[in-house]
Design a protein around this nucleic acid. Structure first.
Lengths: 212, 212
DNA sequence: GTAATACGGAACTGGTGAGTTCCGGAACCC
DNA sequence: GGGTTCCGGAACTCACCAGTTCCGTATTAC
């Protein structure tokens, strides 16, 4: 017996080897990588354990099923820029939009996204976390930036915010997952200049204020 | 022996029960339905045979593998409106766009599309027919309509045709497959009026010329 | 009729993957 | 050291599914 937890209640400090918490991260990372590389069906629990340098028993000691592990892995993959507040107000919508892209040090999560698609169809639990992570967050961010630009008087008042906010996420997801093409800077800049800005500001094709 | 084919050459008319060609269609239809309902992985050959009222042996007598059957099923699912020429020139881009939707008696193929996504990732043969059927065709159609409207002077000359042509397919695919929402007339009309037309014509939000 | 072929259905093979169990060993508390 | 818990690894069960084979029957040409 020992008194060692923060609430001050008496607990039993269990004897024996303690669980190696660093393995949690290794397993989650392996799961994310395999999800991105091979998709949900292609991600086998053996492969996850192998890549994490763990035994399959260790994985199942911490997560009760493949679905639970998948959900946790995706939840823990949170990107950097979640809300409007994470993007400093640069004073111009164009710069704000470009700034999103540079707040991304982590593993390309559009891969993760397409890897999850198959699981979304048949698993409501995965679908829920997927929707929260990859749909709501992105559209909300776009919407926030548009509203901020509207407040600055940069963007028309009469646009359909929800519709316009969905354009960029849709085009990026489409190019990546459906058309199977890369999302490079060139595409993103071109899309912002020829679609998003004209739509938001109502001005012509925004003849390239080239700052790159 | 008998002389019965159209070229007049002597052929051997085989004895025995003849292959029931109507079963080809039944099998292809069953495959398409199951593909749409359960996706590629969820479509089992047993289920296809069952639904078609055929034995599995009969299916394999006609298609050598699940992949081949899938490819044929998708190829045979061709929609009605393939090219610009199938859409009569109504004189207005808005009407042209709305006309696309009404040339569609067949089973909702956005379901088919999302059901195929998983197979696209890992099967190049499926990916090729998918791309031809669901990507190239749609963007080309959009591009054709835009060019026609440009020739009428209805659409700005300085827009990025490829980019703008991709917007509608992207938003529809995104809403359906990623966001998991329905594609109803309301959404399509709203998208046309608040995104596509403003983008193409450069005019404001096209204050609803309501003709429906 | 007879031989040939297609049919539906069922049984079968072989591979794969989720989840479980067991082992010898390592880490920890007392 | 002794008891306890975790570890990696391997072997296992169980279910599912692609593809094959076989059977009794139906259809056709001769």
């Amino acid at each position: 017996m020992s008194v060692d937890d923060l609430t001050g209640t008496t607990t039993t400090r269990k004897a024996g080897r303690r669980r190696d918490v660093s393995k949690d991260d290794a397993i989650l990372l392996a799961a994310r990588e395999l999800l991105a590389e091979r998709g949900f069906d292609g991600m086998t629990m053996d492969a996850v354990a192998d890549r994490a340098g763990a035994g399959k028993a260790t994985v199942y000691r911490r997560w009760s099923s493949k679905v639970q592990l998948t959900v946790d892995a995706v939840v823990c993959a949170r990107g950097v820029a979640q809300t409007v507040d994470d993007i400093p107000d640069t004073g111009s919508l164009r710069s704000d939009l470009l700034a999103i892209r540079y707040g991304r040090p982590r593993t390309d999560d559009s891969e993760l996204m397409s890897g999850l698609m198959s699981a979304v169809k048949e698993n409501p639990e995965v679908a829920a976390v997927f929707h929260e992570q990859f749909v709501r967050t992105r559209v909300n961010l776009m919407r926030g930036l548009l509203e901020r630009a509207q407040a600055r008087g940069e963007v028309r008042q009469d646009i359909d915010l929800d519709m316009v906010a969905a354009v960029a996420p849709a085009m990026i997801a489409y190019r990546k997952m459906v058309a199977g093409q890369r999302i490079d800077d060139e595409f993103v800049v071109q899309m912002i200049d020829t679609v998003i800005l004209p739509l938001a500001t109502g001005s012509p094709a925004t003849a390239a204020p080239l700052d790159r």
